[in-house]
């Protein structure tokens, strides 16, 4: 059995009770603010907020432990790559140089570089909790109606709903096809030479693609038969009216992001510079 995808489960926290629209807006605003800002103070505040909301949500650790592990590896590799490629990036950005330790050749550790890389990590860390929360504490059914409500065309919104619906089925199909292929001696592991491995992959992808195209035909017919796309607007079974709590959270998210942007660009630079 392949590892299960991250899955929604209702633990009934205040975060779970929020409307999908609210969570989507908060997630988007935080993501944008987190992307634009390089102001350490803002990012730190945002991270604290993110983490406390995550704490309130009571999402069980084992639901995201695997993801967390991947995130750590990815971040570590990325940090290493940045340093290897450009050990003086921080010096360039902040305009000063405080060397802490010379390593070898052009590599030395500077406070600027450390601070810069800390910020890169921070930027990513700020976005991860809301993203995970949006995924783990929002009923997948609410994704589509929420997106439609914030202005995405209902057809695109429904396509996303179909993605969530058919990921497990396509995954099962992939497992079935590759199992049958392995039984005939089609090996994808490192035991085979690269060229053969690519060829073998094609032998699995072809039936998978053809089965997917067939599925697209069937599902389209089913959608047509139940009148999908006949009107300019559609309603959603899983939509809920916004409550007072939702309005408050949205207002809060707007205010925080606006504040972040204002503070960040107050001095004309998106970087907060502690060295001058």
């Amino acid at each position: 059995m392949p590892p299960k995808l991250l899955s929604y489960s209702d633990v009934g926290s205040p975060v779970h009770r929020l409307n999908g629209v609210t969570k989507l807006i908060a997630f988007l605003l935080f993501s944008i603010a987190g992307m634009v800002s390089y102001d350490t103070r803002c990012l730190l505040v945002m991270l604290v907020i993110s983490l406390s909301v995550f704490y309130i949500s009571k999402v069980p650790f084992k639901q995201y432990s695997f993801v967390l592990y991947l995130i750590l590896i990815f971040s570590a590799l990325n940090q290493l790559a940045i340093f290897l490629f450009s050990p003086e990036q921080g010096v360039q950005i902040y305009g000063t140089r405080h060397e802490l330790l010379h390593i070898a050749g052009r590599y030395s550790l500077t406070s600027e570089q450390l601070f810069y890389q800390f910020n890169v990590l921070l930027k990513f860390a700020v976005v991860v909790p809301p993203a995970l929360l949006f995924l783990l504490a929002t009923e997948p059914s609410e994704f589509a109606s929420s997106l439609n409500r914030v202005g995405v065309s209902y057809k695109v919104a429904y396509a996303i709903s179909l993605t969530m619906r058919y990921i497990p089925d396509v995954q099962q199909e992939y497992v079935n096809i590759s199992t049958a292929a392995q039984a005939r001696g089609i090996d994808l592991s490192k035991k085979e030479k690269l060229g053969r491995r690519v060829k073998n992959m094609a032998a699995i992808l072809l039936p998978l693609v053809l089965a997917t195209l067939e599925r697209i035909e069937k599902v389209s017919a089913a959608l047509e038969l139940r009148g999908f796309g006949r009107k300019r607007k559609r309603t959603w079974y899983r939509s809920r009216p916004l409550t007072k709590r939702d309005t408050l959270v949205i207002a809060g998210a707007v205010l925080i992001s606006a504040a972040v942007l204002v503070i960040t660009f107050w001095d004309g630079s998106r970087f907060y510079n502690p060295f001058v």
């Binding site: 009148g227 999908f228 006949r230 009107k231 607007k233 559609r234 959603w236 079974y237 939509s239």
Partner: peptide, 9 residues
């Protein structure tokens, strides 16, 4: 089908 027909919630 009701969603596509725009039936109220």
């Amino acid at each position: 089908k009701l969603e596509n027909d725009g039936v109220p919630h």
